[in-house]
Design a protein around this nucleic acid. Structure first.
Lengths: 247, 247
DNA sequence: TTGCGATAGTTAGAAGCTATAACCGCGACA
DNA sequence: TGTCGCGGTTATAGCTTCTAACTATCGCAA
Protein backbone atom coordinates (compact mmCIF):
# COMPACT_ATOMS: atom_id res chain seq x y z
CA UNK A 1 0.00 0.00 0.00
CA UNK A 2 1.46 3.28 -1.09
CA UNK A 3 0.85 6.86 -0.20
CA UNK A 4 -1.96 7.37 -2.67
CA UNK A 5 -4.03 4.51 -1.31
CA UNK A 6 -3.13 2.12 -4.09
CA UNK A 7 -0.97 -0.94 -3.84
CA UNK A 8 2.00 -1.12 -6.17
CA UNK A 9 0.24 -3.91 -8.06
CA UNK A 10 -2.76 -1.69 -8.62
CA UNK A 11 -0.57 1.12 -9.84
CA UNK A 12 1.25 -1.21 -12.20
CA UNK A 13 -2.02 -2.60 -13.46
CA UNK A 14 -3.57 0.75 -14.23
CA UNK A 15 -0.37 1.86 -15.86
CA UNK A 16 -0.31 -1.12 -18.21
CA UNK A 17 -4.01 -0.61 -18.79
CA UNK A 18 -3.35 2.96 -19.84
CA UNK A 19 -0.56 1.94 -22.18
CA UNK A 20 -2.77 -0.66 -23.82
CA UNK A 21 -5.44 1.94 -24.38
CA UNK A 22 -2.85 4.39 -25.69
CA UNK A 23 -1.80 1.96 -28.37
CA UNK A 24 -5.41 1.06 -29.00
CA UNK A 25 -6.25 4.70 -29.74
CA UNK A 26 -3.24 4.95 -31.97
CA UNK A 27 -4.33 1.95 -33.98
CA UNK A 28 -7.92 3.15 -33.93
CA UNK A 29 -7.07 6.54 -35.35
CA UNK A 30 -5.16 5.06 -38.27
CA UNK A 31 -6.88 1.81 -39.18
CA UNK A 32 -10.35 2.36 -37.78
CA UNK A 33 -12.17 0.22 -35.32
CA UNK A 34 -12.89 -2.76 -37.55
CA UNK A 35 -9.19 -3.46 -37.85
CA UNK A 36 -8.50 -3.00 -34.15
CA UNK A 37 -6.54 -6.12 -33.25
CA UNK A 38 -5.68 -7.25 -29.75
CA UNK A 39 -2.72 -9.19 -31.09
CA UNK A 40 -1.28 -6.15 -32.81
CA UNK A 41 -1.75 -4.05 -29.69
CA UNK A 42 -0.10 -6.70 -27.56
CA UNK A 43 2.86 -6.83 -29.92
CA UNK A 44 3.25 -3.05 -29.73
CA UNK A 45 2.93 -3.01 -25.97
CA UNK A 46 5.64 -5.64 -25.74
CA UNK A 47 3.81 -8.63 -24.42
CA UNK A 48 2.54 -11.33 -26.62
CA UNK A 49 -0.95 -12.51 -27.34
CA UNK A 50 -3.36 -13.57 -24.67
CA UNK A 51 -1.73 -11.50 -21.93
CA UNK A 52 -4.13 -8.68 -22.79
CA UNK A 53 -7.00 -10.81 -21.57
CA UNK A 54 -5.70 -10.30 -18.05
CA UNK A 55 -6.65 -6.65 -18.49
CA UNK A 56 -9.69 -6.80 -20.77
CA UNK A 57 -11.91 -9.86 -20.77
CA UNK A 58 -12.68 -9.46 -24.45
CA UNK A 59 -12.23 -7.19 -27.43
CA UNK A 60 -15.69 -5.74 -26.85
CA UNK A 61 -14.77 -4.83 -23.30
CA UNK A 62 -11.76 -2.91 -24.54
CA UNK A 63 -13.97 -1.15 -27.09
CA UNK A 64 -16.50 -0.36 -24.40
CA UNK A 65 -13.78 1.18 -22.30
CA UNK A 66 -12.50 3.23 -25.23
CA UNK A 67 -15.99 4.49 -25.97
CA UNK A 68 -16.42 5.45 -22.35
CA UNK A 69 -13.17 7.38 -22.49
CA UNK A 70 -14.15 9.09 -25.73
CA UNK A 71 -17.48 10.13 -24.23
CA UNK A 72 -15.74 11.32 -21.11
CA UNK A 73 -13.30 13.36 -23.16
CA UNK A 74 -16.06 14.98 -25.19
CA UNK A 75 -18.09 15.67 -22.07
CA UNK A 76 -15.10 17.41 -20.49
CA UNK A 77 -14.47 19.50 -23.59
CA UNK A 78 -18.11 20.47 -23.88
CA UNK A 79 -18.35 21.19 -20.19
CA UNK A 80 -15.28 23.40 -20.31
CA UNK A 81 -16.65 25.33 -23.28
CA UNK A 82 -20.08 25.70 -21.69
CA UNK A 83 -19.50 29.08 -20.07
CA UNK A 84 -18.51 30.45 -23.47
CA UNK A 85 -22.01 29.94 -24.79
CA UNK A 86 -23.48 28.19 -27.80
CA UNK A 87 -20.84 29.14 -30.35
CA UNK A 88 -17.99 28.17 -28.06
CA UNK A 89 -19.52 24.76 -27.46
CA UNK A 90 -20.05 24.24 -31.17
CA UNK A 91 -16.46 25.10 -31.98
CA UNK A 92 -15.18 22.96 -29.14
CA UNK A 93 -17.08 19.98 -30.52
CA UNK A 94 -15.68 20.64 -33.96
CA UNK A 95 -12.06 20.83 -32.88
CA UNK A 96 -12.58 17.71 -30.80
CA UNK A 97 -13.97 15.89 -33.81
CA UNK A 98 -11.29 17.07 -36.22
CA UNK A 99 -8.55 16.18 -33.77
CA UNK A 100 -9.46 12.51 -34.23
CA UNK A 101 -12.18 11.80 -36.79
CA UNK A 102 -12.28 8.10 -35.98
CA UNK A 103 -12.95 8.94 -32.35
CA UNK A 104 -15.97 11.03 -33.26
CA UNK A 105 -17.34 8.38 -35.61
CA UNK A 106 -16.52 5.81 -32.96
CA UNK A 107 -19.08 7.49 -30.73
CA UNK A 108 -21.60 8.91 -33.18
CA UNK A 109 -21.09 6.77 -36.26
CA UNK A 110 -22.38 3.38 -37.31
CA UNK A 111 -23.26 1.32 -34.22
CA UNK A 112 -21.78 -2.09 -33.58
CA UNK A 113 -24.56 -4.62 -34.16
CA UNK A 114 -24.44 -6.72 -31.01
CA UNK A 115 -23.10 -3.98 -28.83
CA UNK A 116 -25.13 -2.71 -25.91
CA UNK A 117 -24.08 0.59 -24.35
CA UNK A 118 -23.57 0.28 -20.60
CA UNK A 119 -25.51 2.52 -18.23
CA UNK A 120 -22.28 4.41 -17.73
CA UNK A 121 -22.01 5.89 -21.21
CA UNK A 122 -25.64 6.94 -21.41
CA UNK A 123 -25.09 8.85 -18.20
CA UNK A 124 -22.16 10.71 -19.75
CA UNK A 125 -24.26 11.27 -22.84
CA UNK A 126 -26.93 12.83 -20.66
CA UNK A 127 -24.26 14.97 -19.09
CA UNK A 128 -23.33 16.34 -22.50
CA UNK A 129 -26.98 16.95 -23.31
CA UNK A 130 -27.35 18.80 -20.01
CA UNK A 131 -24.65 21.27 -21.08
CA UNK A 132 -26.35 21.75 -24.43
CA UNK A 133 -29.58 22.49 -22.62
CA UNK A 134 -27.84 24.92 -20.29
CA UNK A 135 -26.22 27.00 -22.99
CA UNK A 136 -29.48 27.15 -24.91
CA UNK A 137 -31.47 28.06 -21.83
CA UNK A 138 -29.25 31.11 -21.58
CA UNK A 139 -30.36 32.25 -25.01
CA UNK A 140 -33.23 34.70 -25.38
CA UNK A 141 -36.54 33.07 -26.14
CA UNK A 142 -38.26 33.39 -29.44
CA UNK A 143 -41.36 33.00 -31.57
CA UNK A 144 -44.41 30.81 -31.19
CA UNK A 145 -44.21 27.15 -30.26
CA UNK A 146 -43.42 24.78 -33.11
CA UNK A 147 -45.24 21.49 -33.65
CA UNK A 148 -42.14 19.68 -32.44
CA UNK A 149 -42.30 21.60 -29.17
CA UNK A 150 -45.91 20.60 -28.76
CA UNK A 151 -44.84 17.02 -29.31
CA UNK A 152 -42.08 17.45 -26.73
CA UNK A 153 -44.62 18.75 -24.23
CA UNK A 154 -46.63 15.58 -24.72
CA UNK A 155 -43.89 12.96 -24.84
CA UNK A 156 -41.15 13.76 -22.43
CA UNK A 157 -40.48 11.96 -19.21
CA UNK A 158 -36.90 12.79 -19.92
CA UNK A 159 -34.50 15.52 -18.77
CA UNK A 160 -34.24 14.15 -15.27
CA UNK A 161 -37.52 15.53 -14.14
CA UNK A 162 -36.56 19.17 -13.98
CA UNK A 163 -38.88 21.21 -16.13
CA UNK A 164 -36.87 22.29 -19.13
CA UNK A 165 -38.90 24.50 -21.45
CA UNK A 166 -39.68 22.58 -24.59
CA UNK A 167 -38.36 25.48 -26.67
CA UNK A 168 -34.96 25.06 -25.03
CA UNK A 169 -35.09 21.31 -25.52
CA UNK A 170 -35.95 21.77 -29.15
CA UNK A 171 -33.07 24.18 -29.71
CA UNK A 172 -30.61 21.89 -27.97
CA UNK A 173 -31.65 18.87 -30.02
CA UNK A 174 -31.57 20.91 -33.20
CA UNK A 175 -28.11 22.15 -32.29
CA UNK A 176 -27.02 18.57 -31.95
CA UNK A 177 -28.54 17.21 -35.14
CA UNK A 178 -27.49 20.10 -37.39
CA UNK A 179 -23.89 20.19 -36.26
CA UNK A 180 -23.67 16.41 -36.38
CA UNK A 181 -25.11 16.49 -39.89
CA UNK A 182 -22.32 18.72 -41.16
CA UNK A 183 -19.57 17.19 -39.05
CA UNK A 184 -20.27 13.54 -39.76
CA UNK A 185 -20.50 14.08 -43.51
CA UNK A 186 -17.32 16.13 -43.43
CA UNK A 187 -15.42 13.53 -41.41
CA UNK A 188 -16.64 10.73 -43.64
CA UNK A 189 -15.24 12.63 -46.62
CA UNK A 190 -18.55 13.13 -48.39
CA UNK A 191 -17.79 16.75 -49.18
CA UNK A 192 -14.59 15.75 -50.91
CA UNK A 193 -15.66 16.28 -54.50
CA UNK A 194 -17.42 19.60 -54.09
CA UNK A 195 -15.04 22.47 -53.73
CA UNK A 196 -16.32 24.27 -50.67
CA UNK A 197 -14.75 24.38 -47.23
CA UNK A 198 -16.79 22.40 -44.68
CA UNK A 199 -15.75 24.88 -42.01
CA UNK A 200 -17.75 27.60 -43.72
CA UNK A 201 -20.78 25.36 -43.96
CA UNK A 202 -20.39 24.51 -40.29
CA UNK A 203 -20.26 28.20 -39.50
CA UNK A 204 -23.38 28.77 -41.59
CA UNK A 205 -25.32 26.11 -39.73
CA UNK A 206 -24.08 27.42 -36.41
CA UNK A 207 -25.35 30.83 -37.47
CA UNK A 208 -28.85 29.46 -37.85
CA UNK A 209 -28.70 28.24 -34.27
CA UNK A 210 -27.84 31.57 -32.70
CA UNK A 211 -30.46 33.88 -31.18
CA UNK A 212 -33.19 34.89 -33.54
CA UNK A 213 -31.86 33.00 -36.50
CA UNK A 214 -32.68 29.34 -36.51
CA UNK A 215 -33.77 29.03 -40.10
CA UNK A 216 -31.43 28.74 -43.04
CA UNK A 217 -32.06 31.28 -45.71
CA UNK A 218 -31.44 34.56 -43.97
CA UNK A 219 -28.10 36.25 -43.76
CA UNK A 220 -27.13 38.24 -40.71
CA UNK A 221 -24.69 41.06 -41.12
CA UNK A 222 -25.17 42.50 -37.67
CA UNK A 223 -23.00 39.91 -36.07
CA UNK A 224 -19.69 39.61 -37.82
CA UNK A 225 -17.44 39.89 -34.82
CA UNK A 226 -17.32 36.15 -34.47
CA UNK A 227 -15.49 34.92 -31.43
CA UNK A 228 -11.95 33.72 -31.75
CA UNK A 229 -12.76 30.13 -30.92
CA UNK A 230 -13.80 29.75 -34.54
CA UNK A 231 -11.93 26.94 -36.19
CA UNK A 232 -9.78 28.29 -38.92
CA UNK A 233 -10.48 26.86 -42.33
CA UNK A 234 -7.01 25.72 -43.22
CA UNK A 235 -6.41 23.41 -46.11
CA UNK A 236 -4.78 20.79 -43.97
CA UNK A 237 -7.98 19.92 -42.20
CA UNK A 238 -8.33 16.25 -41.54
CA UNK A 239 -10.91 14.05 -43.10
CA UNK A 240 -11.04 10.38 -43.76
CA UNK A 241 -9.84 8.97 -47.09
CA UNK A 242 -12.60 10.31 -49.26
CA UNK A 243 -14.77 7.41 -50.11
CA UNK A 244 -17.71 5.54 -49.04
CA UNK A 245 -18.31 3.65 -46.13
CA UNK A 246 -19.32 1.22 -43.54
CA UNK A 247 -16.99 -1.04 -41.65
CA UNK B 1 -25.87 -17.33 -77.17
CA UNK B 2 -29.50 -16.80 -76.28
CA UNK B 3 -32.20 -14.43 -77.40
CA UNK B 4 -31.22 -11.66 -75.01
CA UNK B 5 -27.67 -11.49 -76.27
CA UNK B 6 -26.21 -13.32 -73.29
CA UNK B 7 -24.74 -16.78 -73.32
CA UNK B 8 -26.28 -19.26 -70.90
CA UNK B 9 -23.09 -19.16 -68.88
CA UNK B 10 -23.37 -15.42 -68.50
CA UNK B 11 -26.98 -15.72 -67.42
CA UNK B 12 -26.07 -18.36 -64.86
CA UNK B 13 -23.21 -16.26 -63.60
CA UNK B 14 -25.26 -13.11 -63.09
CA UNK B 15 -27.97 -15.17 -61.44
CA UNK B 16 -25.55 -16.67 -58.92
CA UNK B 17 -24.05 -13.23 -58.45
CA UNK B 18 -27.49 -11.87 -57.61
CA UNK B 19 -28.19 -14.63 -55.14
CA UNK B 20 -24.88 -14.06 -53.41
CA UNK B 21 -25.71 -10.39 -53.07
CA UNK B 22 -29.21 -11.22 -51.86
CA UNK B 23 -27.81 -13.26 -49.00
CA UNK B 24 -25.16 -10.62 -48.40
CA UNK B 25 -27.81 -7.95 -47.92
CA UNK B 26 -29.73 -10.27 -45.64
CA UNK B 27 -26.69 -10.82 -43.47
CA UNK B 28 -25.79 -7.15 -43.69
CA UNK B 29 -29.17 -5.99 -42.45
CA UNK B 30 -29.04 -8.22 -39.40
CA UNK B 31 -25.41 -8.44 -38.34
CA UNK B 32 -23.97 -5.28 -39.84
CA UNK B 33 -21.10 -5.00 -42.22
CA UNK B 34 -18.28 -5.85 -39.83
CA UNK B 35 -19.69 -9.34 -39.38
CA UNK B 36 -20.30 -9.90 -43.07
CA UNK B 37 -18.63 -13.24 -43.71
CA UNK B 38 -18.01 -14.76 -47.11
CA UNK B 39 -17.99 -18.22 -45.60
CA UNK B 40 -21.40 -17.74 -44.04
CA UNK B 41 -22.79 -16.40 -47.31
CA UNK B 42 -21.32 -19.31 -49.23
CA UNK B 43 -22.88 -21.75 -46.81
CA UNK B 44 -26.28 -20.11 -47.22
CA UNK B 45 -25.99 -20.02 -50.99
CA UNK B 46 -25.19 -23.71 -50.97
CA UNK B 47 -21.61 -23.81 -52.14
CA UNK B 48 -18.75 -24.03 -49.79
CA UNK B 49 -15.90 -21.67 -49.11
CA UNK B 50 -13.64 -20.25 -51.75
CA UNK B 51 -16.13 -20.73 -54.57
CA UNK B 52 -17.31 -17.17 -53.97
CA UNK B 53 -13.95 -15.92 -55.14
CA UNK B 54 -14.95 -16.94 -58.67
CA UNK B 55 -17.55 -14.19 -58.46
CA UNK B 56 -15.92 -11.57 -56.26
CA UNK B 57 -12.15 -11.29 -56.14
CA UNK B 58 -12.20 -10.25 -52.50
CA UNK B 59 -14.47 -9.29 -49.65
CA UNK B 60 -13.85 -5.62 -50.39
CA UNK B 61 -14.98 -6.09 -53.97
CA UNK B 62 -18.24 -7.57 -52.77
CA UNK B 63 -18.66 -4.65 -50.39
CA UNK B 64 -17.90 -2.21 -53.19
CA UNK B 65 -20.56 -3.83 -55.30
CA UNK B 66 -23.08 -3.68 -52.49
CA UNK B 67 -22.33 -0.01 -51.93
CA UNK B 68 -22.79 0.66 -55.60
CA UNK B 69 -26.15 -1.08 -55.51
CA UNK B 70 -27.21 0.83 -52.43
CA UNK B 71 -26.27 4.12 -54.07
CA UNK B 72 -28.09 3.09 -57.22
CA UNK B 73 -31.18 2.21 -55.20
CA UNK B 74 -31.17 5.52 -53.37
CA UNK B 75 -30.58 7.44 -56.58
CA UNK B 76 -33.58 5.72 -58.17
CA UNK B 77 -35.79 6.44 -55.19
CA UNK B 78 -34.71 10.07 -55.06
CA UNK B 79 -35.07 10.46 -58.79
CA UNK B 80 -38.58 9.00 -58.71
CA UNK B 81 -39.59 11.34 -55.91
CA UNK B 82 -38.05 14.35 -57.62
CA UNK B 83 -41.18 15.56 -59.41
CA UNK B 84 -42.98 15.62 -56.07
CA UNK B 85 -40.75 18.39 -54.81
CA UNK B 86 -38.58 18.91 -51.77
CA UNK B 87 -40.87 17.30 -49.19
CA UNK B 88 -41.47 14.25 -51.34
CA UNK B 89 -37.74 13.72 -51.78
CA UNK B 90 -37.16 14.10 -48.07
CA UNK B 91 -39.80 11.55 -47.20
CA UNK B 92 -38.55 9.17 -49.88
CA UNK B 93 -35.09 9.31 -48.38
CA UNK B 94 -36.49 8.66 -44.94
CA UNK B 95 -38.53 5.62 -45.91
CA UNK B 96 -35.53 4.31 -47.83
CA UNK B 97 -33.36 4.71 -44.77
CA UNK B 98 -35.85 3.19 -42.34
CA UNK B 99 -36.45 0.25 -44.66
CA UNK B 100 -32.89 -0.88 -44.00
CA UNK B 101 -30.93 1.21 -41.49
CA UNK B 102 -27.72 -0.70 -42.07
CA UNK B 103 -27.94 0.11 -45.77
CA UNK B 104 -28.16 3.82 -45.07
CA UNK B 105 -25.28 3.72 -42.61
CA UNK B 106 -23.43 1.51 -45.07
CA UNK B 107 -23.43 4.45 -47.47
CA UNK B 108 -23.38 7.47 -45.19
CA UNK B 109 -21.94 6.09 -41.97
CA UNK B 110 -18.40 5.46 -40.77
CA UNK B 111 -16.10 4.92 -43.76
CA UNK B 112 -13.96 1.84 -44.13
CA UNK B 113 -10.37 2.92 -43.51
CA UNK B 114 -8.56 1.51 -46.52
CA UNK B 115 -11.53 1.70 -48.78
CA UNK B 116 -11.42 3.92 -51.85
CA UNK B 117 -14.71 4.70 -53.58
CA UNK B 118 -14.57 3.91 -57.28
CA UNK B 119 -15.36 6.60 -59.83
CA UNK B 120 -18.65 4.84 -60.36
CA UNK B 121 -20.17 5.57 -56.97
CA UNK B 122 -19.15 9.21 -56.94
CA UNK B 123 -20.97 9.57 -60.25
CA UNK B 124 -24.13 8.15 -58.71
CA UNK B 125 -23.60 10.41 -55.73
CA UNK B 126 -23.47 13.38 -58.08
CA UNK B 127 -26.64 12.14 -59.71
CA UNK B 128 -28.40 12.26 -56.37
CA UNK B 129 -27.03 15.72 -55.71
CA UNK B 130 -28.31 16.83 -59.11
CA UNK B 131 -31.85 15.89 -58.12
CA UNK B 132 -31.49 17.77 -54.85
CA UNK B 133 -30.35 20.81 -56.79
CA UNK B 134 -33.26 20.47 -59.21
CA UNK B 135 -35.96 20.33 -56.59
CA UNK B 136 -34.44 23.29 -54.77
CA UNK B 137 -34.06 25.29 -57.96
CA UNK B 138 -37.83 25.00 -58.31
CA UNK B 139 -38.31 26.71 -54.99
CA UNK B 140 -38.89 30.45 -54.83
CA UNK B 141 -35.78 32.44 -54.06
CA UNK B 142 -35.28 34.24 -50.82
CA UNK B 143 -33.38 36.76 -48.75
CA UNK B 144 -29.91 38.22 -49.12
CA UNK B 145 -26.89 36.09 -49.86
CA UNK B 146 -25.37 34.31 -46.87
CA UNK B 147 -21.62 34.16 -46.20
CA UNK B 148 -21.68 30.52 -47.21
CA UNK B 149 -23.10 31.49 -50.59
CA UNK B 150 -20.35 34.00 -51.06
CA UNK B 151 -17.89 31.26 -50.29
CA UNK B 152 -19.61 29.00 -52.80
CA UNK B 153 -19.31 31.69 -55.44
CA UNK B 154 -15.58 31.76 -54.83
CA UNK B 155 -14.81 28.07 -54.48
CA UNK B 156 -16.86 26.01 -56.84
CA UNK B 157 -15.61 24.29 -59.91
CA UNK B 158 -18.21 21.72 -59.15
CA UNK B 159 -21.77 21.05 -60.39
CA UNK B 160 -20.60 19.96 -63.82
CA UNK B 161 -20.01 23.42 -65.09
CA UNK B 162 -23.59 24.52 -65.43
CA UNK B 163 -24.16 27.67 -63.47
CA UNK B 164 -26.25 26.67 -60.48
CA UNK B 165 -27.11 29.70 -58.36
CA UNK B 166 -25.18 29.53 -55.12
CA UNK B 167 -28.42 30.05 -53.18
CA UNK B 168 -29.80 26.85 -54.69
CA UNK B 169 -26.56 25.01 -54.00
CA UNK B 170 -26.61 26.18 -50.43
CA UNK B 171 -30.18 25.04 -49.90
CA UNK B 172 -29.48 21.65 -51.44
CA UNK B 173 -26.43 21.06 -49.27
CA UNK B 174 -28.30 22.26 -46.19
CA UNK B 175 -31.17 19.91 -47.06
CA UNK B 176 -28.69 17.08 -47.18
CA UNK B 177 -26.83 17.83 -43.96
CA UNK B 178 -29.90 18.59 -41.85
CA UNK B 179 -31.85 15.52 -42.86
CA UNK B 180 -28.75 13.37 -42.51
CA UNK B 181 -28.18 14.82 -39.06
CA UNK B 182 -31.58 13.71 -37.82
CA UNK B 183 -31.68 10.47 -39.77
CA UNK B 184 -28.24 9.17 -38.88
CA UNK B 185 -28.68 9.85 -35.18
CA UNK B 186 -32.09 8.23 -35.26
CA UNK B 187 -30.83 5.13 -37.08
CA UNK B 188 -27.88 4.82 -34.74
CA UNK B 189 -30.31 4.80 -31.83
CA UNK B 190 -29.05 7.96 -30.19
CA UNK B 191 -32.55 9.28 -29.55
CA UNK B 192 -33.43 6.12 -27.68
CA UNK B 193 -33.45 7.53 -24.18
CA UNK B 194 -35.33 10.73 -24.84
CA UNK B 195 -39.01 10.16 -25.29
CA UNK B 196 -39.76 12.04 -28.49
CA UNK B 197 -40.56 10.59 -31.87
CA UNK B 198 -37.74 11.14 -34.38
CA UNK B 199 -40.31 11.41 -37.15
CA UNK B 200 -41.62 14.62 -35.65
CA UNK B 201 -38.11 16.02 -35.37
CA UNK B 202 -37.47 15.05 -38.97
CA UNK B 203 -40.65 16.83 -39.97
CA UNK B 204 -39.58 19.89 -38.02
CA UNK B 205 -36.23 20.04 -39.78
CA UNK B 206 -37.88 19.49 -43.14
CA UNK B 207 -40.15 22.41 -42.31
CA UNK B 208 -37.15 24.69 -41.96
CA UNK B 209 -36.09 23.73 -45.48
CA UNK B 210 -39.31 24.64 -47.21
CA UNK B 211 -39.85 27.99 -48.93
CA UNK B 212 -39.33 30.98 -46.74
CA UNK B 213 -38.56 29.02 -43.63
CA UNK B 214 -35.03 27.79 -43.43
CA UNK B 215 -34.34 28.75 -39.86
CA UNK B 216 -35.37 26.77 -36.81
CA UNK B 217 -37.30 28.77 -34.31
CA UNK B 218 -40.35 29.91 -36.21
CA UNK B 219 -43.57 27.99 -36.45
CA UNK B 220 -45.64 28.05 -39.56
CA UNK B 221 -49.37 27.47 -39.24
CA UNK B 222 -50.19 28.48 -42.80
CA UNK B 223 -49.06 25.17 -44.21
CA UNK B 224 -50.65 22.30 -42.38
CA UNK B 225 -51.93 20.37 -45.35
CA UNK B 226 -48.78 18.31 -45.44
CA UNK B 227 -48.59 15.92 -48.32
CA UNK B 228 -49.49 12.30 -47.83
CA UNK B 229 -45.98 11.05 -48.45
CA UNK B 230 -45.24 11.94 -44.88
CA UNK B 231 -43.87 8.98 -43.01
CA UNK B 232 -46.24 8.01 -40.31
CA UNK B 233 -44.81 8.04 -36.84
CA UNK B 234 -45.68 4.52 -35.82
CA UNK B 235 -44.15 2.92 -32.80
CA UNK B 236 -42.70 0.04 -34.75
CA UNK B 237 -40.21 2.21 -36.53
CA UNK B 238 -36.87 0.55 -36.94
CA UNK B 239 -33.72 1.69 -35.31
CA UNK B 240 -30.55 -0.11 -34.42
CA UNK B 241 -30.12 -1.68 -31.00
CA UNK B 242 -29.83 1.47 -28.99
CA UNK B 243 -26.30 1.86 -27.99
CA UNK B 244 -23.09 3.28 -29.00
CA UNK B 245 -21.11 2.63 -31.87
CA UNK B 246 -18.40 1.96 -34.31
CA UNK B 247 -17.87 -1.52 -35.71
C1' DT C 1 -19.94 -36.61 -82.80
C1' DT C 2 -15.74 -35.93 -80.89
C1' DG C 3 -12.64 -33.22 -78.48
C1' DC C 4 -10.66 -29.04 -76.60
C1' DG C 5 -10.79 -25.20 -73.50
C1' DA C 6 -12.79 -22.12 -70.40
C1' DT C 7 -15.55 -22.10 -66.41
C1' DA C 8 -17.31 -23.46 -61.84
C1' DG C 9 -16.78 -26.05 -58.30
C1' DT C 10 -14.04 -28.91 -54.91
C1' DT C 11 -10.43 -29.80 -50.86
C1' DA C 12 -6.01 -28.43 -48.58
C1' DG C 13 -3.59 -25.09 -46.46
C1' DA C 14 -1.30 -20.58 -45.05
C1' DA C 15 -1.69 -16.58 -42.19
C1' DG C 16 -4.37 -13.91 -39.16
C1' DC C 17 -7.84 -13.13 -35.69
C1' DT C 18 -10.40 -13.93 -30.86
C1' DA C 19 -10.49 -16.56 -27.03
C1' DT C 20 -9.52 -20.58 -23.73
C1' DA C 21 -6.54 -23.80 -21.21
C1' DA C 22 -2.69 -25.13 -18.82
C1' DC C 23 1.41 -23.94 -16.83
C1' DC C 24 5.16 -21.18 -14.39
C1' DG C 25 7.53 -17.62 -11.65
C1' DC C 26 7.64 -13.80 -8.92
C1' DG C 27 5.88 -10.57 -5.51
C1' DA C 28 2.93 -9.43 -1.60
C1' DC C 29 1.32 -10.40 2.67
C1' DA C 30 -0.08 -13.12 6.86
C1' DT D 1 8.76 -18.38 5.77
C1' DG D 2 5.19 -20.32 3.38
C1' DT D 3 1.39 -19.62 0.44
C1' DC D 4 -1.67 -17.56 -2.60
C1' DG D 5 -2.68 -14.78 -6.42
C1' DC D 6 -1.35 -12.04 -10.16
C1' DG D 7 0.90 -11.43 -14.66
C1' DG D 8 3.06 -13.52 -17.95
C1' DT D 9 4.06 -17.56 -21.10
C1' DT D 10 3.00 -21.37 -24.89
C1' DA D 11 -0.42 -24.49 -27.04
C1' DT D 12 -4.65 -24.97 -29.13
C1' DA D 13 -9.46 -24.62 -30.93
C1' DG D 14 -12.28 -22.39 -34.15
C1' DC D 15 -13.22 -18.67 -36.85
C1' DT D 16 -11.89 -15.56 -40.73
C1' DT D 17 -9.92 -14.19 -45.74
C1' DC D 18 -7.67 -15.79 -49.40
C1' DT D 19 -4.30 -18.87 -52.52
C1' DA D 20 -3.10 -23.21 -54.70
C1' DA D 21 -3.97 -27.26 -56.91
C1' DC D 22 -7.05 -30.32 -58.74
C1' DT D 23 -11.48 -32.04 -61.00
C1' DA D 24 -15.72 -32.16 -63.40
C1' DT D 25 -18.75 -30.20 -66.45
C1' DC D 26 -20.58 -27.40 -69.96
C1' DG D 27 -20.30 -24.91 -74.47
C1' DC D 28 -18.58 -24.40 -78.83
C1' DA D 29 -16.20 -25.72 -82.91
C1' DA D 30 -14.11 -28.88 -86.07
Amino acid sequence: MDADGKTSRERYRSQVCAEIKRHAWEQLATTGVSALSLNAIAKHVGMSGPALYRYFPSRDDLITDLIRDAYRSLADVVGAAGPGGVAAVAHAIRVWALADPQRYLFVYGTPIPGYRAPEDTTRISNEIMAVLIDVHAALPGDGPATPFEAHLDDHRDWAGGQPVPSAVLRRAVTFWTRLHGVLSLELAGHFAGMGFDPAVLFEAELDTLLPGRLRCDQADDSRDQTDDTRVQADDSRRTLPAGVSSV
